[in-house]
Every structure is written in structure tokens, then in C-alpha cells.
């Protein structure tokens, strides 16, 4: 009965709008997902067969050989690159979150000496940049070229994150902090025992922001450690593959056939396989990512 009443009030316009909405959203879904599924299918398909074209969402001749062979390329360089990627993501996230939390906590104190000066000093850096060349020279003078800390230090403190966390801490009830102080707890006890657990949502948001940025980063390797094999990351290895195929643009035969003498792999298969490897962690963490990122976006977007 109810359905009937509903359908009676529907106009033609409603139906047409619905059709258009669902068609366009359907296209959006396909456009967002298809490329990833296609790459996955290519990575699981026999490279010589891929050369014939026409791989869409399913592999035609299923194989996992590509993964094994890609990881073994150039003496297992990719294993090492994966290790560096993980290492920089973990170290970068931990240091960045730790420092951001402490700095945000200090700045959340109302009676902080010279508070305004500190805040202005930090805010200014959101709008003024030295530029690529002077930054490079500073990094060089600090002796960080070709050193692991170059992945951690330059973007360790991001003003935007500091202020998100600070706002969150300020919005926590003051009484918590005060009662702990009266009980004689030191600043760090208050911060790590009381504030930090309560600020977990915002800390998780910032941690994920930083972790994704770290995992996806390749430009700093390109700039500060381009030929240091020991510091290469997965993203940078994939970027090198991409760059070499861009040099051969228009010569898709070369890209598909590649160097057949050494093994079965083709450049396309290598790229697809590496893309899947690089994307996998993002997909695995995706449920957390989208939950906390969206929260973070509204946290930062509404206030300021």
C-alpha cells in the first residue's frame, strides 16, 4: 500500500533525474575502480599473452610468476626498496605524530609565555616558502643529502596538523588538566596519560595523513637521494620504470615486448605488478583511511 502511494506522488521529473543520477554515478564508480582492476588483471596475466591485448577485468592466462620475477629483478633491489618504504613510513609517522602532539599541547596552554610570537612564527611558514633551490642548499649544508633522515626531517612538522591537534586539545574540558595538575602530575604525565588518550581520534587522523604521505612520497628521493641505491623506495622504483617508458612513448612495441631474452617479463607487466605492490597497503588500510581522513577534513575545514 505504502509503495503505491509513494509511486503515485512521483513525477516524470523524479524518474528522469533518478536515471541521470544513477547513470553518472555508475560511470564514476567504474572510472574509479576499473583502472585498478585492470592493472591487477594485467599483473596476474601471462606477459606474452597480455601483449595480444584485450585484458580487461580478468586475467586470461592466470599466473603469479610476474610477482616472483619482479621482486627478483636486479638482485632483489625491490625487497630492499620495500623495506625502506616501510621504514620511512613507520619512523616518519611516529616522529611526526610525537612532535606534533607535544608542540600542539604546548601551544594549547592559554598562559604560555610569548604564545602569540610562537604561533605567528609557525603560521607564517604556511604561506612563505624558500623554494626548491634554497631548500636544497639548506638540506645539503645540513649534510642530509643521501641520508635516511632526509625522508623524515623536512616534513616532520606540518603547521596544519599542529593546529588541528591543538584545536582538539583546547576543546577538551579544562577541569581534567587542572585536577591532574593539582594532584601534582607533571606536564608530561598530563600530556601522555590524560590528554593523549582523549585526543586519540585526532592523533589517528594525523598519523594516517602522515603515513599516506610518507608511503606515497617519491619526490624527495628524486631530489635528495636520486642515485643512492640503499635509499630507494618502492614509489621511486616504480617512478623510474614509468620515466623510462615515457622516454619510449609512442613505441608501444618496445614497452610490450621489452627485453625478451632475459626472462618472460615485459615492461608493461613489470609496471602493472609494481603498481599493485605499491597500492596494496593503501587498499588494505582503506577502511581506516577513509573513516579518519574524512573526519580530519571536516576538523580542519570547519575551524581555522
Amino acid at each position: 500500500m505504502l509503495k503505491k502511494v509513494k509511486s503515485l506522488t512521483r513525477t516524470n521529473e523524479d524518474t528522469i533525474v533518478d536515471i541521470i543520477v544513477y547513470i553518472i554515478l555508475g560511470i564514476t564508480i567504474i572510472a574509479s575502480l576499473y583502472p585498478f582492476i585492470n592493472i591487477l588483471a594485467i599483473s596476474l596475466n601471462d606477459p606474452m599473452d597480455t601483449y595480444r591485448g584485450g585484458i580487461t577485468i580478468f586475467p586470461r592466462i592466470f599466473t603469479t610468476q610476474n610477482y616472483k620475477q619482479v621482486m627478483d629483478l636486479s638482485d632483489g633491489q625491490l625487497y630492499h626498496a620495500a623495506l625502506i618504504s616501510i621504514l620511512r613510513t613507520v619512523t616518519g609517522t611516529v616522529t611526526s605524530v610525537f612532535c606534533t602532539l607535544i608542540l600542539a599541547y604546548i601551544l594549547s596552554k592559554n598562559d604560555l609565555f610569548l604564545k602569540k610570537f610562537f604561533i605567528v612564527t609557525i603560521v607564517m611558514t604556511m604561506y612563505m616558502f624558500g623554494g626548491i633551490i634554497p631548500e636544497y642548499i639548506v638540506i645539503q649544508k645540513l649534510g642530509l643529502i643521501n641520508k635516511f633522515p632526509v625522508y623524515i626531517l623536512p616534513q616532520m612538522l606540518v603547521p596544519f596538523y599542529i593546529f588541528i591537534v591543538r584545536t582538539y586539545i583546547q576543546d577538551l574540558p579544562d577541569s581534567l588538566r587542572e585536577s591532574a595538575r593539582i594532584d601534582g602530575a607533571g606536564e608530561f604525565t598530563v600530556l601522555f596519560k590524560i590528554i593523549a588518550p582523549l585526543a586519540m581520534p585526532v592523533i589517528a587522523t594525523v598519523a594516517l595523513f602522515v603515513a599516506v604521505a610518507q608511503w606515497n612520497s617519491w619526490f624527495d628521493t628524486f631530489l635528495y637521494a636520486p642515485s643512492k641505491k640503499e635509499l630507494s623506495t618502492l614509489q621511486y622504483e616504480l617512478m623510474k620504470k614509468l620515466a623510462s617508458s615515457m622516454q619510449n612513448l609512442g613505441n608501444s612495441r618496445a614497452r610490450l615486448q621489452g627485453n625478451r631474452s632475459s626472462n618472460q617479463l615485459t615492461p608493461l607487466a613489470v609496471q602493472a605488478t609494481m603498481t599493485v605492490i605499491v597500492t596494496l597497503p593503501i587498499v588494505c588500510f582503506y577502511p581506516f583511511l577513509q573513516k579518519y581522513f574524512v573526519k580530519g577534513l571536516t576538523l580542519g575545514g570547519v575551524k581555522e
Binding site: I29, I39, N216, Q235, L238, L242, S245, V278
Partner: peptide
């Protein structure tokens, strides 16, 4: 949820997809 998946992958991955397509 699906529409912001591409946001989270690196530009290296995105560019690989673009060039392949």
C-alpha cells in the same frame, strides 16, 4: 567510498594508470 580511492594512491601510481590507459 569508491570515488575517493584514487585520492589515496600516489601520483606515481596514478600516472602509471593514466599512461597505460
Amino acid at each position: 567510498t569508491v570515488s575517493y580511492l584514487p585520492h589515496f594512491v600516489s601520483w606515481v601510481v596514478a600516472a602509471t594508470i593514466v599512461t597505460t590507459s
